[in-house]
Amino acid sequence: MASTTPLLGTELVDCARANAKQGIETAAYQCGYGNDLNKFAHELRQACEEMNLQVKELTELITDQDLILQIGTGEVVAPDTASEL
Rank of each mutant, 00 (worst) to 15 (best):
1 M>W: 12
1 M>C: 13
2 A>H: 06
2 A>Q: 11
2 A>D: 11
2 A>L: 06
4 T>Y: 01
5 T>P: 00
6 P>M: 10
7 L>R: 05
7 L>I: 03
8 L>F: 08
8 L>R: 13
9 G>M: 06
9 G>S: 07
9 G>P: 05
10 T>A: 02
11 E>F: 01
11 E>G: 07
12 L>Y: 07
12 L>S: 09
12 L>R: 09
12 L>K: 08
13 V>K: 03
13 V>C: 03
15 C>N: 03
15 C>I: 00
15 C>R: 11
15 C>H: 01
16 A>T: 12
16 A>Y: 11
17 R>D: 01
18 A>W: 02
19 N>V: 04
20 A>V: 01
21 K>N: 11
21 K>A: 15
22 Q>P: 00
22 Q>N: 06
22 Q>R: 10
23 G>I: 04
23 G>S: 04
23 G>C: 03
24 I>R: 06
25 E>A: 10
25 E>Q: 10
26 T>V: 15
27 A>E: 01
27 A>D: 05
28 A>K: 04
28 A>T: 06
28 A>G: 06
28 A>Y: 03
29 Y>K: 14
30 Q>A: 13
30 Q>Y: 09
30 Q>D: 07
30 Q>T: 05
30 Q>E: 14
32 G>T: 07
33 Y>M: 10
34 G>T: 03
34 G>F: 02
36 D>G: 04
36 D>M: 06
37 L>H: 12
37 L>M: 13
38 N>E: 13
38 N>M: 08
38 N>L: 12
39 K>H: 09
39 K>L: 14
40 F>K: 01
40 F>I: 07
40 F>A: 07
40 F>W: 04
41 A>D: 15
41 A>N: 15
41 A>H: 13
41 A>S: 15
43 E>F: 08
44 L>Q: 06
44 L>C: 08
44 L>R: 02
45 R>Y: 07
45 R>K: 15
47 A>D: 02
47 A>G: 01
48 C>W: 07
48 C>D: 07
48 C>I: 12
49 E>H: 09
50 E>P: 00
50 E>F: 00
51 M>I: 06
51 M>Q: 15
51 M>L: 15
52 N>S: 12
52 N>T: 04
52 N>D: 10
52 N>L: 04
53 L>V: 01
53 L>Y: 09
53 L>I: 01
53 L>H: 01
54 Q>K: 10
56 K>R: 14
57 E>R: 08
59 T>W: 02
60 E>C: 04
60 E>A: 05
62 I>M: 10
63 T>G: 08
63 T>Y: 06
63 T>M: 08
63 T>N: 09
64 D>A: 13
65 Q>I: 13
65 Q>K: 15
65 Q>L: 14
66 D>I: 07
66 D>R: 05
66 D>G: 10
67 L>R: 15
68 I>Y: 11
68 I>M: 10
69 L>D: 14
69 L>M: 09
70 Q>T: 15
71 I>G: 05
71 I>Y: 12
71 I>L: 15
71 I>D: 08
73 T>D: 09
74 G>T: 08
74 G>H: 05
76 V>Y: 08
76 V>T: 13
76 V>R: 14
76 V>W: 07
77 V>E: 11
77 V>Q: 11
77 V>P: 01
78 A>T: 11
78 A>P: 00
78 A>G: 07
80 D>Q: 10
80 D>T: 08
82 A>T: 05
82 A>V: 12
82 A>Q: 05
83 S>L: 07
83 S>K: 09
83 S>F: 07
84 E>F: 06
84 E>I: 03
